[in-house]
Design a protein around this nucleic acid. Structure first.
Length: 294
DNA sequence: AATAGTCGCAACCGCCGCAGC
DNA sequence: TGCTGCGGCGGTTGCGACTAT
């Protein structure tokens, strides 16, 4: 679990008591014993086991009752961002990236609101993704990540792969994600001595390819997965399906789309995107990921 | 092989709004 | 009405891992 992650060994090393400076950190009598910094495996297990037995919520009293020398706030954050069984880890899929782009256009930095539409993703993860990757590429392009121009370009680059993906491909993607997820849940359960169950993750119980597909379809219907969840780009994509070339490689896809009648709202975008695709996309992990899968 | 620079992300910080008293 | 405790949010930090030289 935590052992597989890079830990943050700061001046507040694990086990080092610190003074309480949290704004609502919990029991004052424990202020001189509170720990900060990276969580240990033992702490993770304690928290997971306690929540499995008693449920989550009331974080300060939970921290005390569980015997954790952490603030309630820290426990909540650790659980929500890392320990929850339904937390999905790994790279964002093309669908997720497009969705983030679309939702960010609507809501800006409302990360928690955006995260509500990406099952298994946390606001912290989406925020980190946006700040480290999206903004990096916007910087490379010398434009604002919030600008319409940048977002149009990103949608353009991702959309051909997005719409070319047929249902089987989507299901394979989803299956892979949830197999990993199920493995993570199983690992968590094993680490917790079998006390953790994947109660909220129906995908983890899927036994066959068709099960995953059915769950996927149901989730899309239920709005849990917003593959084409009402964003303008998605509607445009659906309307234009068939116009995109089935590209054998990344550069060919971009070239074909640029020269293939793609209509940009910004008349200058076509040439700009072409330059982008020639110079920068090799660093764009999302595209690599997409093509790797194909 | 050593060093410097960059990246990714877990964890922390500070603020806000709400509920209960 | 003001105080206190709490959950939640967005922004920021800092360090290990990775990459370039």
């Amino acid at each position: 679990m935590a052992a597989s992650q890079r830990s943050r060994s700061s001046a507040c090393s694990p086990g080092a008591p610190v003074e309480l400076d949290d704004d609502h950190g919990g029991a004052p009598e424990q202020a001189d014993q509170l720990r900060r910094g990276p969580w240990t495996v033992d702490e993770d297990l304690t928290l997971v086991n306690y929540i499995a037995d008693h449920g989550e919520g009331r974080w300060n009293s939970l921290a005390r009752a569980a015997g954790l020398k952490r603030t309630g706030k820290s426990c909540r954050l650790r659980w929500l961002n890392y320990l929850r069984p339904d937390v999905k880890r790994g790279n964002f899929t093309a669908d997720e990236q497009l969705l983030i782009l679309d939702l960010h256009t609507r809501w800006g930095n409302r990360w928690s609101k955006i995260a509500q539409h990406l099952p298994g993703r946390t606001d912290n993860e989406i925020k980190n993704y946006w700040r480290t990757r999206v903004q990096k590429h916007a910087k490379q392009l010398n434009c604002d990540a919030n600008s319409k121009r940048f977002k149009d370009a990103m949608r353009y680059l991702w959309m051909p792969h997005h719409v070319d993906a047929d249902d089987d491909h989507r299901r394979r993607l989803l299956q892979a994600q949830h197999q990993q997820h199920a493995a993570d849940v199983a690992a968590a359960a094993a680490a917790a001595g079998g006390m953790v169950t994947s109660s909220s993750d129906s995908f983890a119980t899927a036994e066959s390819y068709d099960d995953v597909g059915a769950l996927y379809d149901a989730s899309v219907h239920a709005g849990e997965i917003l593959v084409s969840g009402g964003g303008d780009w998605a509607q445009e994509t659906a309307a234009n399906q068939g116009l995109w070339p089935a590209a054998p490689d990344q550069s060919a896809a971009v070239q074909a789309a640029v020269g293939g009648g793609c209509q940009f709202q910004d008349p200058e975008l076509s040439g700009w995107v072409q330059g982008f695709s020639e110079g920068i996309t090799e660093n764009f992990w999302a595209l690599e990921d997409i093509w790797k899968i194909q």
